[in-house]
Amino acid sequence: MYETLRQILRVGLPSEAAPAAAPDDVVVRRLHEDILRTLGRALTIRHVDAGSCNACELEAQALSNPYYNLEGLGIRHVASPRHADALMVTGPVTTHMAVALRRTYDAMPEPKLVIAAGSCAIGCGIYGANYATVGEVAKILPVDIAIPGCPPSPTALLQGILAAIQASAAKR
């Protein structure tokens, strides 16, 4: 236990300030206000891998490391779509995942934000449209925010999530 505490003290607090939601500057406090105004509480995200190569998943997981401190911003990944405000989808939607993706979306409550993350989710990427893929996420679900990148970096993902919150706030 002593060594565990010592290691925690030695590392200190590596968390960094959140990036601005591209393209305009927003401070973290403003972000919290946006989340609260839009949703009245924390933002919850359900992720669905609809055929990705796993690179986007690795970068989305990285958002939970101490540097990005996602939960400190009031944003959390949740296990059930019924608890989710936003759906983050990666991959060129495969025919085998299309039904599961649609069901996940249907199970979500409003505001049902949809974030298409990565080149594949936006336009099938290197795989292209073929017999086994339905195509980009927008063919199946109404996409609110697209985050380009192969894969998008954690910072780009965070910027995209923040942009989705702002877009949702602007709609009201």
Binding site: S52, A55, T94, H96, M97, I126, Y127, A132, C150
Partner: peptide, 25 residues
């Protein structure tokens, strides 16, 4: 099989350089 996305079929339409991009993904 849920992420089956036709990679082997795609390779047949790749040049050697494109093949590297696909192999890396």
């Amino acid at each position: 099989g849920y992420t089956h996305k036709g990679v082997e079929k795609r390779f047949a339409s790749c040049s050697i350089d494109e093949g590297e991009k696909l192999a890396g993904r």
